[in-house]
Amino acid sequence: MRDISDEERAERRQYTLGLILSIVLTAASFGIVILDVLPRGWVIPAIIVLALAQIVVHLRIFLHIDLTRQKREDLQLLLFTLLLLGIMAFGTLWILANLADRM
């Protein structure tokens, strides 16, 4: 076996944590659907929340997007993208759902 520095060990622990969290979150959303444990109206919101949580885990751990100084530009860009995407996607769904209603 090779030498493993403390730093590397720490990073490995991070990634493993990410893996475990992802597995747990994924299992939770599949479980909700398959086992039918939640009331009807709660299922989809729960799936969305779990997916968002998992996305945050991925960003933080696998992509190293965090709040430290150097990476703020990337974070800002990401947030700005999400803002615009939010406007566009929400607008699309809003407009087209409304049009469908009024058909």
């Binding site: 615009l84 566009m88 407009i95 049009l99 009024r102």
Partner: peptide
């Protein structure tokens, strides 16, 4: 400018509030 695109199709039939 990302929040206004619908003004190109006001007449498409969505509700007045939109």
């Amino acid at each position: 400018s990302f929040c206004v695109w619908l003004h190109h199709f006001f007449t498409m039939g969505q509700s007045p509030s939109i």
